[in-house]
Design a protein around this nucleic acid. Structure first.
Lengths: 151, 151
DNA sequence: TGAGGATATTCGTTATAACGACTATGATGA
DNA sequence: TCATCATAGTCGTTATAACGAATATCCTCA
């Protein structure tokens, strides 16, 4: 008995899984995005800042950031440009290979992220914590398998 | 031992699941989108056309389409406008309630979709079929649970 | 019957994504 | 050493997404 209006009566199991995956990802990301919005960030911007925080004071090149992003964004330049305009990151050209631009998160960026750590944790727990450890592990494992094979 | 560059060493299990979910959804949707592109459609447009095909000759209102979309798109009007310009859908004002616009898929739209049915099936099977029936069921169930609770 | 409010859709505007072409720099090998 | 190719990043342009405000229609009830 379908509970939601979106439930499709026909289709293969693979298709059902595909739709469920996209739909769930959309709902969860949307919730998270609403929270980010209160702090003036988009999910993409948050993601980039977090990646840069993980990189430390060395910073990262555009390509490295692109590789680590959750959703592939082909135009890191302008994404970083927007963050730089708000002084959340700083860019400098690398000396030994002058093609490369390294981007480093600023103190302002770190502060902004710090204020988001707890809300992110709380929201994640609220959205997924109810599954419990075992089911979370199994969900992660299924997703990783699917992703590896899809590439 | 992290196999992928994106693997994060620290973080809660919920967070790991969240990231895995978004990342996997992105990869799968991207693959599907590449295929759609060869046929001149975006994932969103394909989704809308499929919804309209399911609705038959009665068509659907903008709000109904919006409710059924996989990813919430707040501007159905222009999405349908683009499809109408390409003669893939037709719109007409409902007589008894003149606020309502019903959108119906055209024969051209149906033909386009028909040509996509097999590629979609094949790609879904390639991307997710390897999981097998049991694991697909369990993945679907986990995702549905997560989504219901997230709302 | 008509004022006020609800509903369905559209549209103006701004921000972001997507796609290629382009520039600058570095590496390679005849 | 210099033509050639690869690599890193940028930018012009178009299309789409996001956010509100606006318009048109319908409903309700005094």
């Amino acid at each position: 008995m379908p509970k939601t209006i979106q439930k499709r009566p026909v289709g293969t199991l693979e298709e059902e899984a595909f739709v469920a995956l996209l739909r769930t990802a959309d709902v969860l990301q949307w919730r998270m995005g609403e929270m980010f919005k209160e702090h003036g960030l988009s999910p993409t911007q948050y993601n980039a800042l977090r990646i840069l925080r993980g990189a430390g004071s060395e910073g990262l090149t555009c390509s490295e950031i692109g590789e680590r992003m959750i959703n592939r964004d082909p135009d890191i330049t302008r994404l970083l440009g927007r963050l730089e305009r708000r002084s959340l990151v700083r860019r400098k050209r690398q000396q030994d290979d002058r093609r490369v631009i390294r981007t480093v998160i600023t103190n302002a960026g770190l502060t902004l992220l710090k204020g988001l750590d707890r809300p992110v944790l709380t929201l994640n727990r609220r959205m997924l914590g109810h599954l419990g450890e075992d089911r979370l592990q199994s969900l992660i494992s299924l997703l990783e398998t699917a992703r590896e094979r899809a590439v």
